[in-house]
């Protein structure tokens, strides 16, 4: 009798737990669900406040966004910029981080502090001087200019994130390699890098996401020829009229790579968040 009650109570407790998790997820994901739902609605159905009321699903919004290639082009720009930014930031950032983790040298504290602290500078501060500067050297509206701007906040992030990780890797492996006649760079490249590969994936993932999501620099430094996807998305809600359909369709498309990353690399992303935070 008593036993039955206890097991029933346990079952109930489990049920309550799962229901509360479900409610939590529903609330938290509601806006995202709404974006996806809206992207399949016609302009007139969007007027209905109840987001779950019956509507005729349509692919018109996606067609409109994709048909004239402009948005695909913008996605391409975003992709190229994010990939190159990631490569530069990770390669050079990891080298710098390695230097801090492995050597004691004159000025290492000051340089390290300056680089790490600079990550916290609000980008709005840098946007004006960066603009004026790039104007001087004719880098406005170029891939290279925007990539450099992204590197300016992503590389410090990479250093920030990989440094504690590197410090945790024992020196013994590289020392053995050095004794075997490997050069310093050889030891770094052949021994150290494979050891820290998981950390590199995390920092690469984040670098990609931050560059992919950047709005301010893209707004100020890039023009027609390399407009990135976020700028285009915000443009759907303007004087043009509320193109909620197009906005949500484009927004959903931008979310896709993020979904993929979040699902595959979840474990690494969480460890990365714990160390480096978010930009």
């Amino acid at each position: 009798m008593l036993n039955k009650d206890v097991s029933k109570w346990k079952l109930n407790k489990k049920a309550i737990f799962y229901i509360s998790v479900l409610i939590l997820l529903l609330i938290e994901l509601f806006p995202i669900i709404l974006v996806f739902l809206t992207s399949f609605k016609s302009q007139i159905d969007i007027f209905n406040a109840n987001p779950f009321s019956a509507f005729m699903p349509t692919l018109d919004n996606y067609k409109e966004v994709l048909i004239d290639r402009t948005f695909l082009n913008n996605l391409k720009h975003s992709m190229i910029i994010a990939l190159v930014t990631t490569t530069i930031s990770v390669v050079f950032g990891v080298m710098a981080s390695y230097s801090f983790a492995r050597f004691n040298f004159k000025g290492d504290q000051k340089i390290g502090l300056a680089i790490l602290a600079s990550r916290m500078i609000p980008p709005i501060t840098l946007s004006v001087p960066l603009f004026l500067l790039m104007r001087k050297v004719a880098l406005l509206d170029t891939y290279f200019g925007l990539i450099l701007a992204h590197v300016s906040f992503i590389m410090p992030y990479v250093i920030w994130m990989t440094l504690p990780f590197f410090q945790g890797i024992p020196k013994a492996y590289e020392e053995a390699a050095l004794i075997d006649g490997c050069s310093r760079f050889g030891a770094f490249y052949k021994i150290f890098v494979p050891l820290v590969a998981p950390g590199l994936v995390v920092s690469a993932t984040f670098s990609f996401l931050f560059s992919w999501n950047d709005f301010l620099y893209a707004l100020i430094l890039a023009g027609s020829e390399l407009k990135t996807a976020p700028i285009v998305v915000s443009g759907f809600i303007g004087q043009f009229g509320p193109k909620w359909g197009s906005m949500t369709a484009a927004g959903s498309l931008i979310l896709i790579p993020i979904f993929i990353f979040a699902l595959i690399l979840q474990k690494y992303i969480i460890s990365g968040l714990a160390v480096g935070g978010i930009d």
Partner: peptide, 22 residues
Amino acid sequence: VRALLLLPVFILPVVSGLTFRF
């Protein structure tokens, strides 16, 4: 659950802002 909870963190702030305005 954890993967799903990660999504809002990485949503484009502009999209988030516009969606909330809506």
